[in-house]
Design a protein around this nucleic acid. Structure first.
Lengths: 197, 197
DNA sequence: TATTTTTGATTGACTGATCAATCAATAAAA
DNA sequence: TTTTATTGATTGATCAGTCAATCAAAAATA
């Protein structure tokens, strides 16, 4: 079994497993054993590659963030006008895999963790800033700067809020409903600034 | 020291201590010892009165919820028109003690816990429904039913989102800014339905 | 009133379980 | 033979939860 070049394979498997266990459990209080078991290796190997549980968790959130960023970049490439770009940003945040219960549970767990871990908080702040600045860039072309800032704050908050509310599973707002609520918010906030009518 | 009638005093002290420790730590992974220490009693006594850590935690979230409900009732008593009642609901959710970092951290921790604990989730669902139905009751008097539902969803999500974002402490949106973002959302969503201009 | 009994409050010491982390050992490539 | 991958066994720490014992107020009794 021992073949050379296993490191990247194991790292990936362990991060995937961590995400999956965290998603199932809805909490970061998961054991290394459980993660390792799901990745099909021994707990000792997980320590060997990541050094500590904390490091593995940090790598996991990093992965989550990178994925969202890549999706955003991809979606923005396909949109050209400011307004369609705004729609693209919204859609990415609510796309199916982001909206899966396990993914939401994982994000939520990391938000909670951010209260304790400076590093985790830094990552979430990066996410928040990125969302904000993505929105802002296009809003600025559609309305005055101060209005753009406000609308960006509001839209970002609404996106996060819809996301969180989804985690309760009752009072379920569908993906489409979430998208359309956010779209409508932006449209009506933009309305007073639109050139015609 | 042993005097009769200590039970309610101790229960209150322990719930307060739990809230405070959870707020500081920003997590539910706090020890009974720590809670008991802050309440000035032994860990054994905490178990004596609450039976288990889970029960103490459940009572703690209950307390948080009851407080928010009482504040809401009080605020709504002082408002009479639908529009001022909406403003009152918004203000309650962003009032200073609700917006304190420890309180936000505690709410967040309970949201995460709700992924695992059915009972915790039930309480949070109650909160979500209450916010929604409070908003809905007054919105219905200002616009058609279907619009009211949408606006209530949107406003509730925005409130929750602003709340969550506050927990990151960077990208800080002040209390006043949060209130005014929510107010503006409702106003502009209501605009097309207003009787005159 | 004085004395005894009961009961609630409280704790220190302990147990059992869980878990992160370590390490020495093994096995298979290179 | 050296290096890389891998694990079983173990350790040490942390905690929730238990329990028997203590102490003092309250209630009952004399």
């Amino acid at each position: 079994m021992p073949k050379v070049g296993m490191e990247p394979v194991r790292r990936k498997a362990l991060v995937d497993a961590a995400l999956s266990v965290i998603g199932d459990r809805g909490s970061l209080t998961v054991t290394m054993s459980e993660i390792a078991r799901r990745a099909g290796v021994s707990p000792a190997l997980a320590h060997h590659y990541f050094g500590s549980k904390d490091r593995l968790l940090i790598e996991t959130i990093r992965f989550l963030l990178r994925q969202l960023r890549d999706d955003s970049v991809k979606a923005l490439k396909r949109a050209d006008t400011p307004r369609t770009r705004l729609s693209a940003i919204i859609r990415v945040n609510f796309q199916a895999d982001q909206f899966a219960p396990e993914t939401i549970a994982a994000w939520l767990a990391f938000y909670a963790e951010a209260q304790r871990s400076e590093e985790t908080r830094r990552f979430l702040v990066i996410y928040a800033r990125r969302l904000r600045s993505n929105l802002l860039a296009d809003l600025r072309r559609l309305c005055p700067a101060d209005a753009a800032e406000r609308i960006a704050e509001g839209a970002a908050a609404m996106i996060d809020g819809l996301y969180i509310r989804q985690s309760l599973r009752s009072v379920p707002v569908s993906i489409e409903a979430s998208i359309s609520l956010t779209e409508d918010y932006i449209s009506s906030a933009l309305a007073p600034h639109s050139k015609e009518d």
